Computed example of a mutant assay.
Amino acid sequence: MTAAEAPLDNPSRTYRRAWEDIKSGVQLRDLWGHLGWQDIKQRYRRSVIGPLWITLAMAVTAAGLGLVYSTLFKAQIGTFLPYLTVGFIVWNFILGCITEGTETFIRNEGLIKHLPAPLTVYALRTVWRLTLMMLHNLLVYLVVIAIFFSDVTTPGYQMVENGLPQPGLDWSVFLAVPAFVLVALNGVWVSLLFGIISTRYRDIPQVINALIQLVFFMTPIVWSTDILHNRIGGGDIALWKTLVTELNPVYHYIEIIRAPLIGNTQSWHHWAVVGGITVVGWMFALVALRNYRARVPYWV
């Protein structure tokens, strides 16, 4: 009988073993920290400006789309460009956690077969690499905020014409730090859970890649929720807003980071939604680790 055919009542499959995998993985921060940094260096080896290509690519994307969509939506570039820039930065991190998370163990096949390390190490390696990339992208945010500082710090500014007034950038900007930590915690369980499932069923990454573009366009990144208020009238406003935004979990993840960074109204129900998903997600990840942790080396 192969390991993949072994019964699930194996005594090694316990929640204690699953928790030890997570605990040991976190403690090996020198290992996953080094591996994540080496991923960045390897990607831009022999490049003139190295990892700054990450920043340059984000700057070009934000500037180009910001000019186009601010014109289409009749929005002030001074407030809309920071909104779009932060949205793209957070989206890229979430996108990486989902798409690269599904291939976390597949890409680390060689290490998994030859290095006796907890599976959590490879999930943390993925999230740490994406965190480093996000830090590079935040340089674009700092430049944009410096240029349009007076626009985003003006109390009562609007994202689009006839939009909701926003409080403006203030000390609540530091709420973005715990918000990112919470999002990163979700990135780890996504990498663990989806990574295990994708290792067994190789079609999962293809399905996710096919659906991810739809999620992008359904998420308020290049458009604002104020547009729904302006374009959709009558009693259908609440229904459409709920369907398009509130029922989209990615929107809540983006908003808990974006709102404080650009001085938008911080709604605490976004934190509640993300917190609830975090708890449920980690529960599923623990179940997956408990039942299938030992099978991953055979599946890869």
Rank of each mutant, 00 (worst) to 15 (best):
S172K: 13
S172C: 06
S172R: 15
S172G: 13
S172D: 10
S172P: 00
S172A: 14
V173H: 10
V173D: 10
V173P: 12
V173S: 13
V173R: 13
V173N: 11
V173E: 08
F174T: 14
F174W: 14
F174P: 10
L175K: 11
L175Q: 15
L175T: 10
L175M: 15
A176S: 15
A176W: 05
A176I: 02
A176D: 12
V177M: 13
V177H: 09
V177Y: 08
V177Q: 12
V177N: 12
P178I: 03
P178M: 05
P178L: 03
P178D: 10
P178T: 04
P178Y: 05
P178E: 09
P178H: 11
A179D: 11
A179G: 14
A179I: 04
A179S: 15
F180T: 01
F180L: 15
V181N: 11
V181Y: 12
V181M: 13
V181T: 09
L182G: 01
L182T: 04
L182A: 07
V183P: 02
A184G: 10
A184F: 09
A184W: 08
A184Q: 10
L185V: 04
N186R: 03
N186I: 02
N186L: 06
N186E: 08
G187F: 05
G187Q: 07
G187C: 10
V188A: 12
V188K: 01
V188R: 08
V188D: 02
V188H: 05
W189Q: 13
W189R: 06
W189S: 11
W189N: 15
W189F: 12
W189H: 14
V190Y: 03
V190M: 15
V190N: 08
S191Q: 05
S191C: 13
S191K: 03
S191E: 00
S191T: 06
S191M: 07
S191W: 00
L192S: 07
L192V: 14
L192Q: 02
L193F: 11
L193N: 06
L193M: 03
L193T: 04
L193R: 03
F194P: 03
F194V: 00
F194L: 15
G195I: 06
G195A: 07
I196C: 02
I196Y: 00
I196A: 02
I196M: 09
I196Q: 05
I196H: 00
I197G: 02
I197A: 09
I197V: 08
S198L: 00
S198V: 00
S198G: 08
T199S: 14
T199K: 03
T199P: 02
T199G: 15
R200M: 07
R200P: 01
R200F: 00
R200H: 05
R200T: 04
Y201K: 04
Y201H: 12
Y201S: 03
Y201E: 02
R202D: 01
R202G: 05
R202N: 09
R202K: 14
D203M: 08
D203F: 01
D203E: 12
D203P: 03
D203T: 01
D203Q: 10
D203S: 10
I204T: 12
I204H: 06
I204D: 03
I204Q: 04
I204A: 14
I204W: 01
I204R: 05
P205E: 11
P205H: 04
P205F: 08
Q206F: 09
Q206A: 14
Q206V: 07
Q206D: 13
